[in-house]
């Protein structure tokens, strides 16, 4: 994946290689990819320039859908909710994991496999199941409220996911729960691969814990931080199933995210062209984030190879 942007020309062709054979190997998968992925992506662009209910004949309207999008308060609300979720999916898990990792010993830990496996569980479970479980946790009669009543904080008990003030936070925290393990696993592995000499040198220079963190740990984790950031950031931008199960975007539109708005427009209101325009904007956002990462990573590799 990392070698993508680097030239492949270095590998000289062997005498027995038949370049045309490469196409034969790629063909079977590529045909399916072409028809069911690539062509639909191109069609999304085409659709986004039309006004279409999906049943009548599409009418070409140029960029009208995008003009409408720029002024659509529901779209900006949804995008704002995605941004809000970035706090919970990305910033919070990274900060928590970073803090803990820096406080932990860097020596090899026994039983690390168990921790890694356990911390990754939320990542492999279906988001629908995660949603069902946490919907009950936050339910008015659910475990969280029972606990609050038990310790005498009855007035705090509320239907968290149905509360206009609290629903975004509750839904966001579920995202934090899903993502923090990934960050921890990444950072713990990263810290253990930082050379001891760097820490010793810092100590000789009289560095305190903060300096050590700032000048040794943090730079040493650059790669892992980038991966954690991109993965969780994209998760926050594209979230659908989790929110769908937890709140359906409610109450009102308090937790409605862009992907849900696309679903609503294209498949419930039959505004196919408009939904496609929205989908395209979302795609461009997400692809740019991934592409920037690709670029940064391959640049770094080039620099390291040049050394």
């Amino acid at each position: 994946m990392k070698t993508l942007l680097r030239g492949d020309a270095v590998s000289a062709r062997r005498p027995y290689e038949r370049p045309y054979q490469a196409y034969l190997y790629i063909l079977p998968g590529f045909v399916i990819y072409l028809v069911f992925v690539l062509w639909p992506i191109v069609s999304t662009v085409r659709y986004s320039l039309t006004e279409w209910t999906g049943f009548t004949t599409p009418r070409y309207v140029g960029l009208a859908n995008y003009e409408r999008l720029a002024k659509d308060e529901f779209f900006w609300n949804a995008l704002g909710n995605n941004a809000f979720f970035v706090l919970f999916y990305t910033i919070l898990p990274i900060l928590v994991a970073l803090l803990l990792t820096s406080l932990m010993t860097r020596r090899h830990l026994r039983g690390m496999t168990i921790f890694r496996v356990g911390l990754f569980v939320p990542q492999v479970m279906s988001a629908v199941v995660v949603g069902i479980i946490w919907r009950w946790m936050f339910d008015y009669r659910g475990p969280l409220n029972s606990f609050l009543r038990e310790i005498g904080l009855t007035e705090l008990a509320r239907p968290w996911l149905g509360d206009f003030t609290w629903a975004p936070y509750a839904a966001g925290l579920v995202g934090t729960w899903v993502e923090y393990g990934l960050c921890m696993v990444l950072f713990i592995a990263g810290v253990q691969s930082i050379s001891d000499e760097l820490y010793d040198a810092a100590r000789v220079d009289g560095a305190n814990l903060w300096h050590e963190f700032r000048h040794v740990t943090l730079p040493g984790l650059q790669q892992q931080l980038l991966v954690a950031f991109v993965v969780t950031f994209i998760a926050a931008l594209r979230v659908f199933d989790l929110v769908f199960v937890l709140t359906r975007g409610g109450p009102g539109r308090e937790t409605q995210v862009v992907s849900m708005l696309i679903y609503e427009r294209a498949f419930e209101y039959h505004e196919v062209g408009y939904g496609a325009a929205m989908a395209l904007v979302m795609t461009v956002l997400i692809v740019s984030v991934s592409a920037i990462t690709f670029y940064v990573q391959s640049r770094r590799e080039e620099r390291e190879n040049a050394r």
């Binding site: 999304t44 659709y47 992907s259 696309i262 496609a276 979302m282």
Partner: peptide
């Protein structure tokens, strides 16, 4: 993302 293909 899936959204890029789903409508068409």
């Amino acid at each position: 993302p899936t959204e890029a293909v789903i409508i068409p």
